[in-house]
Every structure is written in C-alpha cells, then in structure tokens.
Simulated scan of single mutants.
Amino acid sequence: MQYQGVLKKMKTENLDEIQYYLDMKTDFLNMNQLLNKEISISFIKYECLNCHLEKTVYRQGFCKSCFFDIPQAADWIMKPELSKAHLDIEERDLAYEKSVQLRPHIVYLANSSNVKVGVTRKGQVPTRWIDQGAHEAIEIVETPNRYLAGITEVALKEFVADKTNWRKMLKNDIEEVSLIEWREKLKEFIPEEAKAYFIENNSETHLNFPVKKYPKKPKSLNLIKTPKYTGKLVGIKGQYLIFDDETVFNVRSNEGLVVSIEV
C-alpha cells in the first residue's frame, strides 16, 4: 500500500498505550498498526502549511515569507512571556492573538529525559506531554492567560531545564524523580502575579508509549539528504518514528514535506 501527503505532526490519543495517527490527506494512518512492519518513506517536494505553495520550508512547516508574516509563527508562540494580547497590543493579528493568548494556560513539569518545565494551553493537555515523549507529567500552575504562564516558566527554568534531551528521551534514559516533590520545591519561586494560580494536591499523569525496542545510539534521518529510506518500524515516542537499525525520524520537524509512505 502507498500513501502520499504533506507531513504534519501526528495526532495522538492517550489510551492504555498511546495511539498515533498520521493524516495523509486522503488517508488516515494508525501508525501503531505499522509496528514491526517494513515501511519506506520518500521525499517528493515541499508544501508550505500556510500558503500551500511549493516553496522551501523555512521553519515550523512554513515557507520563509509566511513564517515572518502569519500570527501562528510569531515570537510569542515559542516565548510565551512575550505575549501582549492581555494589554490589547497587537503583534501580527490581535484577534488571533487574543483567541490563543487569553485562554487558560498550564505551567507543567514533565519527565522525558530529565525534569523540565513547560507551558501549554489547557486544551493541549496531555497532547503536549505526549509530543515531548514524557513518561510522566504534572500540572503546577493554571493561569488565565499565556503571559502569566510565560513569566512563570521563565522564573522556574532558573532551577530546572526547559528543553528535552531528545537522544536521552529516545534511548529511554530517564531519571527517576518525584514530580510532586519538585512541584513543592519550586512553589516558592513562582512570580507573585501567578502565585494565586498554583495547583495543590494533584497527581502525576503517566504515559505509555508504543515502543518495542529503544535505540542505543539514535541517528536522525534527514529526508532532504536521504530522499528515500526503508526500515522496520519498532517504536513511536514523542513525535519520533523509531526504526530497527536505530534510525529515528522526527515527524514534527519535517512538517511541510510532501512524502510517500509505502507499507
């Protein structure tokens, strides 16, 4: 069977074992069903996720002109502390910015390779944790807007990481820690403006990824340099496909590539 479409991050469903789905325009692939099967991935062309033109992807699945123009790629996406919609200040499109920034946001701790702090919209829990390959996570602050979550993250990353070590995450090399203990330890460092939004007495969420075999030395597949790759799929974690020969492919970082997948 052959499928073709533009890559977008895999959709997920948090069941006993996380289910992964790849939307290939005309087909919706349950990637879990491809585990232990040989698949081929071939690069065909680029397609910007915004303008849908065949233009080289610059970042986040967008061509360069879209990346510097659309609100979905503005600086506050990656740096929530730069949000200004709560002040009625526009960066690129105030209506869009209000629709995203003025919603409840969660500051969380996650353990995917080590303890890290992060921010996500409340509606993105637990999707955000799954995308990061976190085995466990806990919500620590729920704010009414993105800005307050952002300044809380900035304050807390003085004491914990704010990035995932993707190699450790894929090797399943995880530090055993208590996120509840970390939550209590970090409580005093929450900014005054956000202290009232601290969440007490909640428990950790545990996540189970469909991985048959973890790589010891993961090597990343670059589809532009290697336009066709064939391998046996042995796991899915975060947004990575893991193959038997220790090749790993990050679907999310390849958004905007039109590919064919042959099973």
Rank of each mutant, 00 (worst) to 15 (best):
M1P: 10
I18A: 03
N50S: 14
F249R: 03
E246W: 05
F159N: 13
E176C: 10
K116E: 09
K216Q: 15
C63E: 01
D131Q: 11
Q60L: 12
T127G: 12
E193F: 10
I39G: 01
N254C: 05
E175W: 05
A110V: 12
V100P: 10
P191I: 04
T247Y: 05
P71V: 01
I140G: 05
N111H: 06
P71Q: 01
Q239W: 03
E54A: 11
N14V: 15
L29H: 07
S113C: 04
R128K: 12
E181Q: 14
D131L: 07
M31T: 04
S112W: 03
L241E: 01
Y21N: 06
L148T: 01
L29T: 05
P144K: 11
E81F: 10
V258C: 12
E200W: 08
K8L: 10
G61P: 04
L109F: 03
V177W: 07
L148S: 02
E176K: 15
S260H: 01
G61H: 03
R103W: 07
W129K: 05
L179E: 01
V107L: 09
E192W: 08
L170Q: 07
D131P: 07
N202V: 13
D27F: 12
F43C: 02
Q2A: 11
Q4M: 11
N36D: 15
G118N: 04
E246H: 06
